[in-house]
Amino acid sequence: MHYPEERPALSRVWELSARLLGLLSLWFGLMRLFPFEIAALERTFARYAWLPPAETAPALSLALAVLESGIGLALLLAPRGAWRKGAALAAMLFWGAGLALLFGAAAWIHDPPYGGFPVIGSGQTLLKHLGIAGLALGLYARERGCPHGRRRALYLLWAGQLLVLVWIGLMKFTLVEAQGVAGLMRPSPLFAWLYGPFGEQGASNVIGVIELATAASIALWPWRPALARWGLWLAIGTYVLTNTFLFTTPGWEPGYGFPYVGGTGQFLLKDLLLLAGAAVLLLSEPPSRAPAAAVRRPRA
């Protein structure tokens, strides 16, 4: 297969993104073999009438472990070619399918004074799937040698960044999110100091303002990539900082420790894919704004 030429630095970014997606897919897949992830799948099945019965969770968790781990191994170890292309396509479908859970009531907060959509609860982790599926689509298009498909994937990555930053940023101004994020921020020396001058809601508001300002800058990427770079760098910093919660919360599954990650740990680690696979790629491949050259026909 013929692959279009890439700058060496850009090629390294795409290769790093493929390896990182493979590593996390393998890691998350292996976690499905443990009781805490099987129990989480049972709870998910119980909350959605259109999903399989909860008693099927052990068998389906094993099947998902094999699928997700297989995708991860192929992305990690396979050279460029058919195996990696197939794994990238499977990863795109796998992560994209998770977005369907946003159409169930369990993704939203219904406790008073909230009445469901758009006040998002456990569905926050699902918002990240759009950007991750976009990353996998970009890898698939790259393996096919399709620059136009890769360009479309970059726009999906861009939309995925905005979806996460805008929605979760707006949530920071709600009481329920302020209380929830306090469990991550208070144990962290990087964030705990905010609670002195600002209080619980104020500290959450500060983070919300930063996230929305970051999103506002990234929103300019298709038209003003030079200005969007500031927001992309802020997004990278945000994702790096959120992953420090793995060590200060800690984000490992209670009773297991490192390297066992359940819901909270996986929620945080997905930011690494938004960092390397989205923010860094958007920095590395700004959209081409050069107009197409006009075709002049010679006069008779």
Rank of each mutant, 00 (worst) to 15 (best):
P197I: 15
P197Q: 13
P197H: 12
F198A: 15
F198R: 03
G199W: 13
E200L: 15
Q201S: 11
Q201P: 06
Q201N: 11
Q201D: 13
Q201G: 06
G202W: 12
G202S: 13
A203V: 12
A203T: 15
A203Y: 08
A203I: 13
S204K: 04
S204W: 06
S204I: 10
N205V: 11
N205W: 15
N205G: 08
V206E: 08
V206C: 12
I207Q: 12
I207A: 15
I207N: 06
G208L: 05
G208P: 05
G208T: 09
G208K: 13
V209L: 15
I210F: 15
I210C: 13
I210K: 07
I210H: 05
E211W: 03
E211Y: 06
L212T: 10
A213E: 02
A213W: 10
T214M: 10
T214N: 01
T214F: 02
A215M: 11
A215S: 09
A215N: 09
A215K: 10
A216M: 01
A216S: 02
A216C: 00
A216E: 00
S217H: 05
I218P: 01
A219F: 12
A219P: 01
L220I: 07
L220Q: 08
L220D: 02
L220V: 03
W221F: 07
P222L: 09
W223N: 01
W223H: 07
R224I: 04
R224K: 14
P225D: 03
P225F: 09
P225E: 05
A226I: 01
A226K: 08
A226W: 02
L227H: 02
A228F: 05
A228H: 06
R229H: 00
R229N: 00
W230C: 12
W230L: 15
G231A: 11
G231E: 04
G231P: 08
G231S: 10
L232Q: 09
L232T: 06
W233P: 01
W233L: 15
W233A: 01
L234M: 15
L234P: 01
A235H: 06
I236G: 03
G237Q: 05
G237C: 05
G237T: 12
G237W: 06
T238S: 04
T238H: 14
Y239G: 01
Y239R: 00
L241C: 04
T242W: 10
N243R: 11
N243I: 07
N243Q: 14
N243G: 03
N243Y: 10
